[in-house]
Amino acid sequence: MQDFASSFTHAMGLILQGDAELWAIVALSLQVSLTAVIIAACIAMPLGAALAVTRFRGRNVVVVLLNALMGLPPVVVGLMVYLMLSNAGPLGVLQLLYTPTAMIVAQVILVTPIIAAITRQTIEGLDAEYAEQLRSLGVSASAKIPTLLFDARYALMTAFLAGFGRAIAEVGAVIIVGGNINHVTRTMTTTIALETSKGNLALALALGTILILLAIAVNAAVSTVGLRARSIAYA
């Protein structure tokens, strides 16, 4: 218990003093996960919306598959990306293994199904309300996708933040493809795993605290966006 208390005091000290190493790790984590979520959103939102408004044979199978992919195990994604990017792999020539780019790729794969599935569900609900009116206005099926995405913008913020929450908190994929190299690919989660096993609880606790604060901030942001949307009847 003595250990824990002193580690915790030390951890708070690291945060409050603005420890350079600590903040470099936080900055890299944010850079990797934010980039990954932005890329994933650019892919997943149009894809989810297109799936929401089109009807074809086997569509239900695709929807079930997409929902299932939300639960992709991060370590397995990490392994797949590792195999693709390793020297023996098909993309080995790119020399991306153990770089932040490799971590971004892994997180994009992890997050895209989450954002796409939430987008599909959101847009399908909105389309049920809008479809006849938009047809009546002469809006074509392809032209209505941007309309639906824009009008669902508040609801889609939730999808974005859910994706971010997943990316910033996962450890399995980034540790495999990033390699947890000091000052290069060391993120909050991988550092916590490493430092805990080394017994350096102070740094691990400091990062853990920041990670929890981030999680709370993300949830608060989701709620605030939701409240704002309801207040102007756009929810």
Binding site: Y130, E132, Q133, D151, R153, A233
Partner: peptide, 8 residues
């Protein structure tokens, strides 16, 4: 329509 469909 019976229930107006207004864009957000």
């Amino acid at each position: 329509f019976q229930k107006p469909v207004l864009l957000r």
